[in-house]
Amino acid sequence: MRHIISVLLENESGALSRVAGLFSARSFNIESLSVAPSEDESASRMTIVTSGNDDVIEQIVKQLDKLVDVIEVSEITSDEHIEREIAFVKIKDKSISKEMMDKFSKNEFLKIHTTNSDEIIIECVDSPEKINNFLDSVKKIAVKIVRSGSVGINSN
């Protein structure tokens, strides 16, 4: 099962490699990982999307917690939460029909950026599932897809 783990860790050099190294050393899956500053400027928050059965997830949480730089670990998928990713899709002007363009501009989760070439960039911020759907719909005409990892937060 897919899980999102949120980790608050000291903003020290090497902290990211401690987490990434832990996942590879213990053969834990890692689907995506994103890291950025948090509300506390001396700490970063990392969101890790992983998968495994309950025992594996329990071990992942415990092993993360054991890292000396880690301040707090929480598994957020077991409770109500919001999850978002961002994707950019570069498409040639000529590949987009007028119909499609109308649909895109009406979608509140999409933003269209023009470029100084014959391409446009569509920005999509949504849940991974919706992003998958969107990407499926433009897969055939996409020149380039750039996608972030997930970030998530508990919402209760």
Binding site: D55, E58, Q59, K62, Q63, D65, K66
Partner: peptide
């Protein structure tokens, strides 16, 4: 003393 040792191999 190490929580990660518990239920790692044997529940």
């Amino acid at each position: 003393v190490d929580p990660s040792s518990i239920s790692k191999n044997i529940k």
